[in-house]
Write a protein that binds this DNA or RNA. Structure first.
Length: 270
DNA sequence: CATAAGCCCTGCCCGC
DNA sequence: TGCGGGCAGGGCTTAT
């Protein structure tokens, strides 16, 4: 699914349409991960003030209240200028006076949640535990190293947990660790300052590059029809058994917490 | 049947 | 020893 770059690309795409638009109606399809938290018709008449992002959450700031939208594993957003009947997997429409924002999400791991106030319990629950934004200045090697102190879990697990740094999903976690030449199984707390600095740079580079390319193309994500043009060439992700692009050693695949981890046993030596 | 891009929740475990 | 935080695992759903 959308990791940070894909969510940010989505934000960039829909923000110009939505900012300043007035909500005319809200249509809900099948239940998403959590209930909206408000009667849909209560949102009509509200104006979208800004579209921001926190981690993998899109935040639609209304003149009163806030909509949190998460794409889950298979969600994608489209902007409709001409009305179109909702398909089987279209589970949320934000109809505005300028057009319709439509969430397409076959797996329904996504969510749209309304929060009345900043300190809304649900908003707090979802956003409160999030780590630093990796592309902002606040993401800095010293603090990164400090945050990893006391984490005995494998570095890849900690990267993906999102409470230290946000936005790094399975693909970019694998890619970042390869670039940093760090074995994904290494306990986070055992990484030297120098290696943490390398990982810090690698995370930024990988996300930045994916962002520049318009988000990597993932099956479900490309359902929107416009993202299908670019496929980020991966160093290790989904390349089990294929030769490492640097040294030729076959890429290995292991399981870490129900997720696939890919690495080069030579480039990412212990 | 296994696997897939995410993430919250639960209950257990470990270390201060 | 007790408490709190960290961590592993489960589960949600549909498509391939």
């Amino acid at each position: 699914m959308p990791e940070l770059p894909e969510v940010e690309v989505t934000r960039t795409r829909v923000a110009p349409h939505l900012e300043g638009a007035r909500v005319a109606a809200v249509r809900m399809g099948l239940p998403l991960r959590w209930p909206l938290g408000v009667a849909p018709q209560a949102l009509t008449g509200r104006r979208v003030v800004a579209v921001r992002r926190r981690g993998k959450y899109l935040l639609f700031e209304l003149d009163q209240g806030l909509l949190l939208l998460h794409l889950g594993m298979s969600g994608s957003l489209r902007w409709l200028t001409v009305p179109e009947p909702a398909g089987r997997h279209d589970h949320f429409d934000l109809v505005t006076d300028r057009g319709t924002l439509r969430l397409h999400d076959p797996r329904r791991f996504g969510a749209v949640v309304y929060a009345d106030r900043q300190d809304d319990p649900m908003a707090q629950r979802l956003l409160g535990g999030l780590g630093v934004e990796p592309l902002e200045d606040a993401f800095e090697p010293q603090q990164f190293h400090a945050a990893l102190r006391g984490r005995r879990a494998p570095i890849k697990t900690v990267l993906m947990a999102g409470d230290v740094v946000v936005g790094v999903g399975n693909i970019y976690a694998n890619e970042s660790l390869f670039l940093a030449r760090i074995r994904p199984t290494t306990p986070a707390m055992r990484l030297s300052r120098a290696r943490v600095a390398r990982l810090h740079g690698a995370v930024r580079e990988v996300l930045q590059r994916a962002l520049a390319v318009g988000g990597s193309t993932l099956r479900d994500f490309s359902a929107d029809g416009h993202m299908g043009c670019f496929q980020l060439e991966t160093w290790v992700y989904d390349r089990a058994g294929q030769p490492c692009r640097v040294c030729g050693t076959p890429i290995r695949c292991i399981r870490q917490g129900q997720r696939s981890t890919y690495f080069c046993p030579r480039c990412q030596a212990r």
